[in-house]
Amino acid sequence: MDRRFVYILVALAVIIPMLFRVNLPVSVSEPTQKLYDYIEALPSDSTIILAFDYGPSSLAELNPMAKSLLRQCFDNDVRVIALTLYPDGTTLASTLIQEIAEEKGAVDGEDYVFLGFRPGATQVILGMGSDISSVFETDYSGKATTEIPMMKDITNYAQISLLIDLASGSSTEVWITYANVQYNLQIAAGVTGVIISQMYPYLQTGQLVGLISGILGAAEYERLIDVPAKGMLWINIESFVHLLIVGLVVAGNIIFFNQRRREE
């Protein structure tokens, strides 16, 4: 089969379900449920850190997670400190937080703060363990961190209930190595599909309190907070693409075995 024909099939498998909305039932996996329950159990006025460690190439998978997490936090009066270890993540994170804050009526500096980006991932993580304001002297808009109302009682990880790393690379492992092991900070992650398998050893040891896995995890989380959005839409579309790929692999193997039998 010509590869261009395969490309057309993939395009159709994406476009057709998008035109005719399909709603398949999504069951919630244990790691996603654990993270949801952990945030639900946090007392109001707790503070979490949400790290946007990804760039535009991964926003399709990770933005729906970020939106669901922010919705849940703002609904439960959990305050959010957002930051990024990726220079590409600043504008993306800032826009997304503002969108959800407006939707939920959250106030900048009281319910959330976006600290922006600082270079040197390991040094930033270790530095925040001593004093967050020494690493992020100002927030993204240039306000002094020490003068931001919600940061007044926060010095370091000791006042943080949970860190959620939304990652498209190896940043979660860096957070675990330096923030969890060194400072005992509780960590959860939302990761792209390609790195899910790397996270399971940390789930088993309890170094990750929960995990949102790819676009399926995003859809599961949307189901948990009862706000179906792009995660739900995209996982249904992805269902058809996966079916197509499985069909192609099976077809390819049938052709392969037929050819081998003829040669023998």
Binding site: P25, A219, I235, E238, S239, H242, I245
Partner: peptide, 10 residues
Amino acid sequence: MMGNVPVGDL
């Protein structure tokens, strides 16, 4: 792959 999408369970 099939476990990663809801249609797999179906």
